[in-house]
């Protein structure tokens, strides 16, 4: 459905951020992109959604294809109409707009007002909490509610593919589970494809079908979520478990530092 072929991204004409990233997202499933801070996860998402341009970045090599159509270099708002929606890191709801107005803004590409109404009802079905907050200014919602609103707002454009940037950021573990649960339901019910960027690898590998690990602007590892969960490097560096599978103790860390088995 989405194919990124060996792209390079350069900011400001000099800063090389992605150095050859390739990945595929299959239809109707969650693919996750794991990596530390500054690895290039968000840049990859922005390269797909066309927002690089607003930050003076550009794709200098490689190509991005969505359903067989080349989309690198397209403008962000045209891509939304094509069916790619992005949920931003840190939620970024329109704070001074009410919940409902946020959803209406999200439905900008829908021409038919009936579809906007249906869309709002659909979002309220998935996130019943938002219905209670319907006429409240979204800036005063709780973090979890704002994240729900951000996902709901992205749903309003009836996307085929959703780019989800760290939905777990700053949320309580219970809320994270709730939100991941809803996302999984969405994928199953709406045949949505999701590219999920996460730091919470345990959560992400729990719901994803396939995963990629990105470091320093390169994809260093990829595989099915099951395989990644068993990979000893992933266990050590992303899941915080040691070889045996028990929780790591800090005493061992001091005595023995394991080296990664990939080069980045």
């Amino acid at each position: 459905m989405l194919a990124i072929n060996n792209i390079e991204v350069v900011y400001d004409n000099v800063i090389l951020v992605l150095k050859g990233v390739s990945l595929h997202v299959e239809q109707g499933s969650i693919t996750t992109l794991l990596g530390a801070n500054g690895a290039g996860k968000t840049t990859t998402l922005k390269a797909i959604s066309g927002l690089l341009r607003t930050e003076r970045g550009q794709v200098t090599k490689g190509s991005i294809e969505f359903n067989g159509q080349r989309i690198d270099g397209m403008r962000a708002f045209d891509l939304t109409a094509l069916g790619v929606a992005q949920v931003f890191e840190g939620r970024r709801v329109f704070e001074h707009l009410t919940c409902e107005e946020n959803l209406i803004a999200g439905a900008h590409v829908q021409r038919d007002y009936g579809k906007v109404r249906d869309g709002i009802d659909r979002v309220f079905q998935y996130f019943p909490r938002l219905k209670d907050r319907r006429y409240q200014q979204s800036g005063y919602l709780s973090g979890g509610e704002q994240q729900m609103l951000a996902i709901g707002r992205a749903l309003m454009s009836s996307p085929k593919m959703m780019l989800l940037d760290e939905p777990s950021l700053g949320l309580a573990p219970m809320l994270v589970e709730e939100i991941f649960g809803i996302v999984s339901r969405l994928v199953a019910a709406e045949k949505l494809s999701v590219l999920l960027v996460e730091q919470n690898a345990t959560m992400a590998l729990g719901v994803a079908k396939h995963g990629y690990v990105i470091e320093n602007g390169r994809v260093v590892l990829e595989g099915s979520a099951e395989a990644l969960k068993k990979n000893s490097d992933i266990r050590e560096f992303y899941l915080g478990l040691n070889e045996v599978g028990s929780r790591k103790s800090y005493r061992e860390v001091k005595h023995y530092k394991r080296r990664k088995r990939w080069l980045s």
Binding site: S49, L51, T54, A76, F77, T80, A81, A85, Q86, F88, R92, F94, E95, H96, L97, E101, N102, I104, A105, G106, H108, V109, R153, S157
Partner: peptide
């Protein structure tokens, strides 16, 4: 509403189409 969204955050508004 779209215009108010633009005023709020241009980049996010752009991602809304």
């Amino acid at each position: 509403v779209a215009m108010r969204a633009v005023a709020e955050n241009q980049q996010v508004a752009m991602a809304m189409g």
